[in-house]
Design a protein around this nucleic acid. Structure first.
Length: 223
DNA sequence: GCGACAG
DNA sequence: ATCTTGTCGC
């Protein structure tokens, strides 16, 4: 049941799969490559374009990329949007020739109502260490200090579900949470390493650009 | 009951 | 997410 047919099924599935999330990195975890994933949509259409871009964490150099153009598998429902993007993202991931050491998803991981956002789903589905990096929080957060690297806790009730991470002074922070096989501190350190020049990690930026480009190209061909 | 709600 | 121009600033 990769794609549920109802909202109720989707919610139940998330709650079940949440138990499979591992909040600790593999022993001696020292990733050299990271892949960013993103999906672009066409207005008024169900057309989606998924992109995965692998970069060298130390240099930011793009090593490989893969894409998939398809149809949205599920309507957009806050808290369930993983079901919309997952099929296309997994297809694109399967086209990479080399498996990345780390995945960086465009959305939340544990910072989710049922502790199972897109990043967790992607991680559990692939078995790869995965980080969730979102541009918008689902809850309130105290603003982190205005210094690169500063963090503040993202809380959902009494649970600390992630962190607001300042990647650039004077700019809104990004919202980092554990996806799978990683801990929050390691996740923040990796995101900081990937976001040297811009607010968002290089992986996310590259995947965003590529997915938009592919969508643009495909809608031209399908006319 | 009402509003909020990743992309 | 997407629709959209210019503008301020490093």
């Amino acid at each position: 049941m990769l794609v549920p047919s109802t909202v109720e099924e989707a919610v139940t599935l998330q709650s079940t799969l949440a138990a499979a999330v591992v909040r600790t990195p593999p022993p001696g975890f020292a990733p050299r490559t990271a892949a960013g994933l993103d999906v672009a949509y066409a207005v008024g259409s169900e057309l989606v374009a998924a992109a995965v871009v692998t970069v060298d964490i130390a240099t930011g150099e793009v090593l490989e990329s893969a894409t998939e153009v398809g149809t949205a598998a599920f309507p957009y429902v806050p808290g369930l949007f993983a079901f919309r993007e997952l099929p296309a993202l997994l297809t694109a991931l399967g086209r990479l020739r080399t498996t990345p050491d780390l995945l960086v998803a465009d959305g939340h991981g544990l910072a989710h109502p049922r502790r199972f956002g897109l990043a967790c789903h992607l991680g559990v589905a692939t078995g790869l260490p995965t980080i969730g990096v979102a541009k918008t929080p689902m809850a309130d957060y105290p603003p982190p200090a205005d210094t690169r690297g500063a963090t503040s806790p993202l809380r959902d009730g009494d649970d600390e579900v992630g962190a607001a991470l300042r990647t650039r002074p004077g700019v809104k922070p990004v919202f980092v949470s554990v996806g799978h096989r990683i801990d929050l501190a390691t996740a923040c350190a990796q995101v900081l390493a990937l976001a040297r020049r811009y607010r968002l990690p290089e992986t996310t930026r590259q995947a965003d650009h590529l997915s938009r480009q592919v969508l643009k190209d495909s809608r031209g061909e399908l006319r």
